[in-house]
């Protein structure tokens, strides 16, 4: 630090703690609401300290579900979200590491064409082509299936670009050495490239898991059955326009449950998360 002032050191801490408090407040309030009963919340009598119904509300949310709006317990929704997020993360890593390997380590006609075909998809988020994509998934009979939730979202340029960038940093000598040892493309991939890519894979996994878990528009369109809806969709359906019908305590318990897995992933795998965030944006 350039200047040493006693007060100067307190102010930044204070500002940061106020910032943290403001950022955390909506979540804290959701947690508090998830421990009260519906009437207290509806009458606006909820305080700032947690209420007595923590176990009861969470039990009802996870195993029973709301009585009116979603008809499906949150446990099922979480399972759907988990399958979707895992499918997207693992699928993306698998197909993009293979395509990046082909583009970097092979010489073949239309190599650059293939690269550009993939690259351009970076510019087409699902939001701009929802209805035609929906129609294709419907024609393929994939509505209300995990495949329909996962497959259309696993192709994107991000992963391929990330792995390509990483492969370019692997020294050429390694390929030459393993070629001298008589290794083919498969053995080089399995013994050298894959072990070296683990950090990159993990970083991509963190980002894509969050991306998959938080999907909204896509599952909203292609799931019609209650048993297939994800937790993020379920929450939205619990908020009914007529106030009296919304079971806020369960909606808030669901919100807390919906935040828990991705937030835990970010906090527990912080370094990978930051690495993934910085690298996927390039």
């Amino acid at each position: 630090m350039v200047e040493r002032r006693r007060l100067g050191n307190i102010v930044p801490h204070l500002v940061l703690w106020i910032g943290i408090a403001i950022v955390a407040f909506p979540v804290y309030l959701a947690f508090v609401a998830s421990t009260y009963d519906a009437t207290t919340i509806a009458n606006g009598q909820m305080g700032l300290a947690p209420g007595p119904l923590f176990l009861e509300n969470y039990y009802r949310a996870i195993f029973v579900g709301t009585s009116r709006s979603t008809r499906e317990p949150v446990g099922t929704m979480m399972l759907n979200s988990f399958v979707m997020a895992m499918g997207i993360a693992v699928g993306k890593i698998a197909i993009s590491i293979l395509s990046a390997y082909a583009i970097v380590y092979f010489k073949f006609p239309f190599r650059m064409t293939a690269f550009w075909i993939i690259f351009i998809t970076l510019m087409l988020p699902v939001e701009v082509r929802i209805y035609p994509t929906y129609k294709i998934v419907a024609d393929l009979g994939l509505l209300d299936t995990y495949a329909g939730l996962i497959v259309p979202l696993i192709a994107s340029a991000t992963g391929t670009l990330l792995f390509r960038q990483f492969f370019m940093t692997i020294p050429d000598e390694l390929v030459e050495a393993s070629k001298i040892d008589g290794a083919g493309f498969f053995r080089f991939f399995k013994d050298t490239v894959l072990p070296l890519s683990i950090t990159t894979m993990a970083a991509l996994f963190v980002i894509q898991f969050i991306y998959g878990w938080n999907q909204y528009l896509w599952p909203l369109l292609i799931t019609t059955k209650d048993s297939m809806q994800t937790i993020v969709i379920g929450i939205k359906k619990m908020i009914v326009t007529q106030d009296a019908l919304t079971e806020w305590q369960l909606a808030m318990a669901t919100a807390v449950l919906a935040m828990l897995p991705p937030v835990a992933v970010v906090i527990l795998m912080q370094r990978l998360f930051v690495k993934g965030l910085v690298e996927t944006e390039k």
């Binding site: 940061l16 910032g19 943290i20 950022v23 909506p26 979540v27 309030l29 959701a30 609401a33 969050i210 878990w213 938080n214 909204y216 993020v232 969709i233 929450i235 939205k236 908020i239 806020w248 909606a251 808030m252 919100a255 919906a258 935040m259 991705p262 937030v263 992933v265 970010v266 906090i267 912080q270 998360f273 930051v274 965030l277």
Partner: peptide, 18 residues
């Protein structure tokens, strides 16, 4: 400060709506 990144937009909306 970084964890809100992981909160789904729709869930963030519901928190603020509440």
């Amino acid at each position: 400060l970084m964890w809100p990144y992981a909160v789904a937009p729709a869930v963030a909306g519901v928190l603020w709506l509440f």
